[in-house]
Design a protein around this nucleic acid. Structure first.
Lengths: 147, 147
DNA sequence: GCTGTTGGGTTTCATGACGAGACCGAGATG
DNA sequence: CATCTCGGTCTCGTCATGAAACCCAACAGC
């Protein structure tokens, strides 16, 4: 939980970051996108403290990005699965990951890729103009306040 | 500065988050995309503490996302401008902001929009398949480890 | 020449989130 | 009956954060 909220902002980036901007949260989402479902699973592939993981998962469930479903009774055990809201972060996660690929990578081959199911081609994050339908480069975009 | 790095991860999302995942950093980038350039400017439109802002700007400059350029001598004053590396975060910022628009917004009209310069249509973040060229929905994408 | 203001910071200090590691409890396994 | 697995909670030290005070150089006004 963040100490001070961004609530004065009237900005959905700020609101998004209140949930997803905490340390570890986006890595948990990425792990879930890769298929991890269980508490110990997340512990194994992120080097996160157990208490922090418990806290983040609870917050993700509270905000509706994940759901906690029993995957067995006796002993009762839970899996954490992304909801459609959580899965909707794919664009943002891929965009950020590929920014890292382009600008921070030490080696040529990025360690993780997003692929198109079926066609199996590599997927990349882009900006697209809803009017003219074209792919838009960074320099061709402005961010504006509407209000 | 984060206390514990994500370095065991071999993941460019993790590396990206070490720079851009700190509290405030992405909001500073958004503010810069909206045109803010000066220290007092960032102070005005984010409710951030001065020391934290100084720290974040220094880190952004260190990592090459922003540059500190004098905009006047006598008295010497500096502006902070996004470099191409910083501007390359546009995709990710827009993706996250629009995730917020879709999933967290209280009102219909999102407070900020990305627009296509020239054509002036609204821009949205998408995933695009490099092979078949089509726009890819969230459910049609898998993230995979290559190594 | 004194006072105040503007811009861009640094210093000081408290507080609370984070991280490590121990502990816990229910059921399975040997 | 002891031990292991899974999914947590508890305790405690430490460090990043946030608020506020302070600093300094260059003016501007009187």
């Amino acid at each position: 939980m963040l100490r001070h909220t961004y609530e004065g902002q009237d900005c959905n980036l700020a609101r998004a970051l209140e949930i997803v901007g905490e340390r570890w949260t986006l890595l948990i989402v990425r792990s879930a996108l890769l298929g991890t479902e269980r508490f110990e699973g997340f512990l194994d592939n992120l080097e996160i403290a157990r208490n922090v993981l418990a806290n983040r998962l609870a917050r993700l469930v509270d905000h509706g990005l994940m759901e906690r479903v029993p995957y067995q009774e006796r002993p009762l055990r839970y899996a954490y699965r992304l909801t459609p809201v959580g899965r909707d972060l794919t664009r943002a996660v891929v965009a950020l990951m590929q920014w890292g690929d382009r600008n921070l990578s030490r080696d040529e081959q990025p360690p993780r890729r997003a692929d198109h199911l079926g066609c199996d081609g590599p997927v990349h994050a882009t900006l697209c103009c809803s009017r003219c339908g074209r792919e838009v480069r960074n320099e061709e975009v402005t961010v504006r306040s509407v209000r």
